[in-house]
Nucleic acid binder design. Sequence first.
DNA 1: CTATAACCGAGACGGTACGTCTAGTCTTCTC
DNA 2: GAGAAGACTAGACGTACCGTCTCGGTTATAG
Lengths: 209, 209, 209, 209
Amino acid sequence: MQSRSPATRASGRPRSVEADAAILAATREALVELGWSKLTLGDVATRAGVAKTTLYRRWSGKNELVVDAVAELFDELVLPDRGSLADDIEGVVLQFAAILARPEAASGLMAVVAESTRDDALRDRIRSSIVERQKRLVLEGRARAQTRGELPSETDPAEAARTVDLIFDVVAGAVVHRTLVSGHPADEEWVREFTTLLLGGLGAGTQEP
Amino acid sequence: MQSRSPATRASGRPRSVEADAAILAATREALVELGWSKLTLGDVATRAGVAKTTLYRRWSGKNELVVDAVAELFDELVLPDRGSLADDIEGVVLQFAAILARPEAASGLMAVVAESTRDDALRDRIRSSIVERQKRLVLEGRARAQTRGELPSETDPAEAARTVDLIFDVVAGAVVHRTLVSGHPADEEWVREFTTLLLGGLGAGTQEP
Amino acid sequence: MQSRSPATRASGRPRSVEADAAILAATREALVELGWSKLTLGDVATRAGVAKTTLYRRWSGKNELVVDAVAELFDELVLPDRGSLADDIEGVVLQFAAILARPEAASGLMAVVAESTRDDALRDRIRSSIVERQKRLVLEGRARAQTRGELPSETDPAEAARTVDLIFDVVAGAVVHRTLVSGHPADEEWVREFTTLLLGGLGAGTQEP
Amino acid sequence: MQSRSPATRASGRPRSVEADAAILAATREALVELGWSKLTLGDVATRAGVAKTTLYRRWSGKNELVVDAVAELFDELVLPDRGSLADDIEGVVLQFAAILARPEAASGLMAVVAESTRDDALRDRIRSSIVERQKRLVLEGRARAQTRGELPSETDPAEAARTVDLIFDVVAGAVVHRTLVSGHPADEEWVREFTTLLLGGLGAGTQEP
DNA sequence: CTATAACCGAGACGGTACGTCTAGTCTTCTC
DNA sequence: GAGAAGACTAGACGTACCGTCTCGGTTATAG
């Protein structure tokens, strides 16, 4: 969905803003009911009360549409201040797990990631719409922990950025793998164990009660 | 692929054993060239020099076929003895990253995982053919580390199993996320940093040189 | 519809012969109900109880299909022996007019002729399937009239062929124009006047009662 | 195109007169390049430098537009005085054949005739705009022949009118059939033979040199 | 000189059919 | 009975036009 500058007033009938929202909502609805592989753009258009052409005028295909529809889900994530780094991590991971457990997220997200292995434009879209957008949570959590004195201030900015990426890959990857591949829920118990491992490492984690 | 008991030898022409291998190889070839979404069973049959009926007699559909074709790739993984737990982990993670970087693995694996969110039989097939099968690496690594004295012996068998699952989710998830979602290579430098984090936890990892 | 040699026995499932007939019948039915311009191949397929692919496997498009469907109609024409050239002409012209008055013939025939002005292959198909096929009527009528002594035997074969073409254009053209362009029925009275004109020419025809 | 009385002068901006001519010219141009079936009203509007709404305000659809665009072509026909009935007929038939040979006439005319078999309003439009309008040629030719003494004066006005219709159907039908269905040019030789047949009838025509 | 009304271009809209493609099944002949 | 070949039904694909609509703006007459 490309944003158009409000300055360059286009001639002709303007695009319907209701249609955009209706299509994205219909896409999520269809993902819930049918899943990625049985979702058809014709069906989405019908659900949205919109013609297929209207849909294709805005999105070039199923992949792009689903990325946008799923991306909105992750904007709900917030980092609640629970008083300690461990509790903050547990809180946000549980939220992330809750979103991933929703059928519209799981089916759609994995599928577009699969497609993105052969489509660089799609990969960029996923990264900018979803991944980079949510790294804010890691940044915010670290800053808060540093304020509390739980983590030292970083000295090398480049290394700091690499660390953010690494933590994001570990956290997001672990939750996704637990939920979708292993097929077990990322419930409170698991999240506690995972947080312990993340903070203390392999040696520490396995020895605590 | 359903196994048939050798006892109940059916009359008539026996199934060609070459066909099975040819079909799986053709599937991987098609995954490399076309990716999951553009792979068609008709095309796979043609590449394998086989009729579509032959293919459908053995596999019920695209998903099952691709799971079998991809599963074979991960059987290459071995855990080389490099002398320390950290080096063992680095070694096997690098191997895993190398397999994931191959186009037939990435596209196919993510796609069947996406499909498995709505198909329990498929989820079981993936788990038994791929996930559980490779947990041997974690078990073997832990046993070796315990022999070396790097890790304590576990006391509670149930907790020990849970820890294996957790580590597997963290390791596999992090590599998959790094490679396919973040879109950066899981190279030696990243693997070293990841291993440091895994062993020492957040506090330790960010302070070491 | 291409005829296949019975000698070269094709492998694989043979094409359904019932489907061919059902499609042509459905085409005529749709022409009656909808007319050329609102006839859709999807609808024809549905009426014939056949998938669209089956239809496209046999005909390359709407034009070719309609030519074949209409051509069959004109094979009903016969030249009844009524005893004199004039009566024979009247008889066959009335039959021709009756076919043209049927809605499946009128709408379809004119439309494919219109299309054939820009499609040489279609023009040839029309000529061979419809026009040349029905010139048998002119030939038979002339032979009969010569036997009766109403017409002299032709001496120059080339001129004789040209005359057949000319008569066919005049007769078919007049009936078509009367029926479809002028929009009046080619009834017995008109056919009698036309036959008089054709046999006697302008001078004679306008003076008789 | 509906004419509006100059008495009921409407307020508001008057319709552009240039637009009408531009649209009809663009229609003929598109007929030449694309033929009836590939002509689209959006394309015609673009060629005419006009919005689609402007086109639809004047014509209700493709059929009506093409009738008007084609009708103008036939107004070029004149009946030159060549001294005898036969020569007059040959002259006007050749002119008619020349117009029909133009691609914008052939494709468009046959197509609207085909459509008119299911649309009475369209049939009337064709008759009044094209057919009846050109019967003036037959009337004028007969009057001239009567003046010359080549044809007797008609006694019964009703029969005379029927004869005009008959001749028109025969002449127009034969040329159309020759040109579009048989696919051969209505050249001078053919026109001479046709005129001979028309004047002398079957018996006479085939015996003369 | 302003109001009003029909016009104009542009282009988005809901809808329908297109012709192609793939899925998964069925039917024939051959090994 | 397995297998190769290929036709079969079913249905989604993405595109193209249809005829309508909704914008901002223009050009005429009427007041």
